[in-house]
């Protein structure tokens, strides 16, 4: 197993050192994820309302994955449901 080939050296270094800004924990991220994604889809400033979410998503591949899934699913659905 080795680092994926499509990722550059600088991207790998960034993955290793992680975000330097204050970030949410995984549990806090999950708690706020629905609100954050709805705000983003509504065009609001989600990063201002849910401080610490963006750095966490940059640093945590699993939470980034969960965020991407919820965003994609809501985009695929009619707004009421």
């Amino acid at each position: 197993m080795s680092p994926p080939d499509h990722i550059s050296r600088d991207q790998l270094i960034a993955r290793v050192i992680g975000p330097s800004e204050a970030e949410l924990t995984c549990d806090e991220c999950f708690d706020a994820l629905d609100r954050y994604v709805e705000l983003e889809l509504d065009g609001a400033d989600a990063d201002r309302v849910v401080a610490g979410m963006r750095p966490h998503l940059e640093g945590c591949p699993a939470c980034q994955h969960d965020y991407g899934s919820l965003l994609a699913y809501l985009k695929s659905r009619p707004k009421s449901g």
């Binding site: 197993m1 080795s2 680092p3 994926p4 790998l12 993955r15 290793v16 992680g18 970030e23 924990t25 995984c26 549990d27 640093g59 945590c60 591949p61 699993a62």
Partner: peptide, 27 residues
């Protein structure tokens, strides 16, 4: 997690830990 792309919840299961605890370790 960062070099070998092991999902954190898979790692948590193998190490008998939790996702939150492992992310704290990573942090």
């Amino acid at each position: 997690i960062t070099l070998n792309d092991v999902p954190i919840d898979v790692l948590a299961q193998r190490l008998n830990s939790t996702r939150g605890a492992l992310y704290k370790t990573l942090h």
